[in-house]
Design a protein around this nucleic acid. Structure first.
Lengths: 337, 337
DNA sequence: AAGCCCGGTGGGAACGTTCCCAAAACAGAT
DNA sequence: ATCTGTTTTGGGAACGTTCCCACCGGGCTT
């Protein structure tokens, strides 16, 4: 039993008394093969326990049936972990349907980034899924130029022309603010995300839009920049309270910043939601565990992953065109508003 | 620029005015090549932007420089998510050092399991890392028989003869119980894990060992089985309190069960740690957020991942033998004890 | 001056597939 | 019977590498 080499297509052909090509046809499900021959080949395959060598196949077809998912590890890992986990689940689920393998690449530093580029570039994958790419990162362009289809998680600006899947940041933000307006809040501050990122800009735009629709003037004094961290949220909240002590609500562009805001409000003895209502964005696990539980805008992260994978396979397998998809978000009302 | 095929080793050879072999030698860092030739080849590589095709290479070397990490998704995902995340981080970090790619396979159901076997078996990977394999699962054996080195996360029983990396379950449990004894507790109950799993058995053994060492009789009335879930922990705690109202401490074989125990203790108005001290096992994120924060045994999950990957590469790259490694655990004392 | 060794080199073969195309086998029609 | 057309078949070539081995040339030994 041991010692024998793996059977190849030739071994099978010999055993079944047919040519290589016929075996190949059977394996690949072609119907240009007689019932008789097919039966003999299948028997031989089973007897020999033959499994086609996908590397050899890949060499001639120049397809690997695997895609890379690249995740930068530098981004604050703690808050974002559940995000990545959900994303991976989604991607993996969609790929399983098309029998495509997932190559996961965590990129920690520049050297690992170079290594990732080398690996991806080396034709081991049919396409690439990229998470949190910065606006000025030349990588996606490079990849596409090398003939490697690429799909981004999150567009980089309003005019992104690569394939991407994003959640409806502006819409979600607007829904959050609309909800606050509905509850009678009129001085709604916002802790924005970094404005050099589309997420940051889009969520701020949503805040403006909702005010516009409702005919409530959007007071720019109520806008404070943040950096998506808890500490940043705390600082932003403090400076907002100084500038506009009369604010009665805050929309934070991320749950983590909302958590910081909650901490600062507690420190200054402002009741939530009594004095100030708070809404976050993302609906991470965090949101359920704050005091009080956080109203927030839910992103469909797992679906985002699924969609990314689906778009990529559409491109690699069926030669589809680039696609830009925006997924709806949903307001989850808890006790902070 | 566009339209041109990828350059191959032949293109480079022609451009540099040398033979294929010389290019190959330069690419693979052989030193049997003159400084002059090397320089010309390197220049040509840069000009043409040549990247060796790893599929072709794999065909002749029969190495893919990639390994599979197989994670069953069926296990209660919520509690275990941070575990998997840490594991993946560790594996990925160790693989990056050896320029090995990671193929991640989430297995949700039988059909995905079959697909995973097909893929792995098809020579796309050099080896396999398996997480949470059941004792009676024939998979690891099958894989090794096909010549695919396999490393398990967690041994399956005391006599496991495949490669595995496990944390010191018995030792960690004993440390936890010793700690409780040191604090003067004398009626230390335990909520055990499933006894058909080695983790469960080993942690229970630790509870016994610590009693033995200290000369305190281990009262079997104080042992209650659990299933690693929160609800199971709650039920176990209740039946323990009925049977042995005089208990003054509980060692739960998992954080999640400890959380359940805490809930039941609160319901019955027993103070923690005043009346009853509680210790868990794992040091998941949960542990920091319970009331009071949970004393627990920390498993070095990320290192577990790193070690698995290291062992596997030792085997695939250097023909090392199977290895069984047990990693030390560490007691993290918080306020529940 | 002849022989030998050794660093350096390159062409052929092989890895296990798929694809192309020509040919064999068979059937039906004249 | 011969021809034509359709189905079925299989061998050659190709995919882009690495490895084996044979060869070349120059310096060293004798």
């Amino acid at each position: 039993m041991a010692g024998n080499r793996q059977p190849t297509i030739k071994t099978v052909a010999a055993r079944a008394g047919v040519g290589r090509t016929t075996v190949s046809r059977v394996v690949n499900g072609s119907d240009l093969v007689s019932a008789d021959a097919r039966a003999r080949v299948l028997a031989a395959i089973k007897e020999l326990n033959y499994v086609p060598n996908s590397v050899a196949r890949g060499l001639v077809t120049s397809r690997t049936d695997s895609v890379a998912l690249v995740i930068p590890e530098s981004e604050s890992r703690l808050g974002s972990e559940p995000y990545f986990a959900a994303l991976i689940r989604g991607v993996s689920a969609a790929l399983a349907d098309t029998r495509t393998q997932l190559q996961l690449t965590l990129v920690r530093d520049q050297s690992e980034r170079d290594q990732m580029i080398a690996s991806v570039t080396t034709r081991r994958v049919d396409g690439v899924l990229l998470v949190s790419v910065h606006a000025d990162d030349p990588l996606p362009g490079m990849l596409e130029e090398m003939g490697l289809p690429t799909v981004l998680a999150g567009r980089r600006d309003e005019r992104e022309n690569l394939s991407y899947v994003d959640s409806d940041n502006a819409g979600g933000a607007a829904a959050a603010v609309r909800h606050l307006l509905d509850r009678g809040r009129r001085r709604i501050a916002t802790i924005a995300g970094p404005l050099d990122m589309d997420v940051g800009r889009a969520r701020l735009a949503g805040w403006r839009d909702a005010h516009g629709e409702a005919g409530v003037p959007a007071d720019e004094v109520l806008v404070q920049g943040g950096d998506f961290t808890e500490e940043g949220g705390r600082r932003a909240m403090r400076s907002l309270l100084e500038r506009a002590p009369d604010l009665d609500a805050v929309f934070a562009a991320s749950d983590l910043m909302a958590v910081g805001a909650l901490a600062e409000l507690r420190r200054q003895d402002r009741q939530v939601p009594g004095d100030v209502a708070v809404v976050g964005f993302e609906d991470s696990v965090l949101a359920r565990h704050t005091h009080p539980p956080l109203t927030t805008v839910r992103q469909p992260v797992e679906e985002l992953g699924r969609t990314m994978a689906r778009i990529l396979t559409d491109i690699t397998r069926h030669g589809a065109e680039r696609q830009q998809v925006t997924l709806p978000t949903r307001l989850v009302v808890r006790e902070s508003s």
